[in-house]
Design a protein around this nucleic acid. Structure first.
Length: 150
DNA sequence: TCTGTTATTGCGC
DNA sequence: GCGCAATAACAGA
């Protein structure tokens, strides 16, 4: 198992992985930067939208809330869905989606920041600013990446 | 088992 | 707008 730290704005992103499986991602204010997988670094600097071939341990069958995490993984870069939308896809309750997001072991790889509430942005742990920054970054980058063919 | 936890939603003032 | 009830799933005791 390997660990590494990457910068995102004022935050440090701590990554734990082995091979192509991401086990844990967490945020902190301090930490010495070190090697993290290429895709993570590229994504955080706004240079790519894909984590492939990296995968989160959370979408493994049998992992708690894996069905919900899989549904969240299908949200495209730069767009959002509500907690209700995810609940419908994963065939569960919207309140349960909230619990799953809070306990998400690997934010970013499971793009939980793309899940917003019906009447606002929803929440984020440890700091809502991270969610706002990620959404803003994705929204701006979508223009130049051009996934959406017009 | 039972309890606490939870990043929501919609209805009635 | 605000308060509040409904409500699912998991961890920990």
């Amino acid at each position: 198992m390997k660990t590494g730290v990457c910068r995102f704005g004022l935050w440090k992103v701590n990554v734990v992985w082995s091979e192509n499986i991401i086990h844990k991602i967490s945020f902190s204010r301090t930490g010495e930067e070190s090697y993290v997988p290429h895709q993570i670094r590229q994504y955080l600097s706004g240079k790519t939208a894909e984590f492939l071939p990296l995968k989160s341990i959370a979408i493994t069958d049998g992992y708690p809330y894996s069905k919900i995490y899989k549904a969240v993984s299908d949200i495209p870069y730069g767009s959002t869905k509500t907690y209700s939308d995810i609940a419908k896809i994963a065939d569960t309750h919207h309140r349960t989606v909230g619990v799953a997001m809070k306990r998400n072991p690997t934010p970013l790889v499971i793009p939980c920041h793309r899940v917003v509430s019906k009447s606002g942005i929803g929440g984020f742990t440890p700091d809502l600013e991270i969610k706002k920054s990620l959404l803003k970054m994705e929204k701006e980058n979508t223009k130049s990446f051009r996934f959406i063919t017009d």
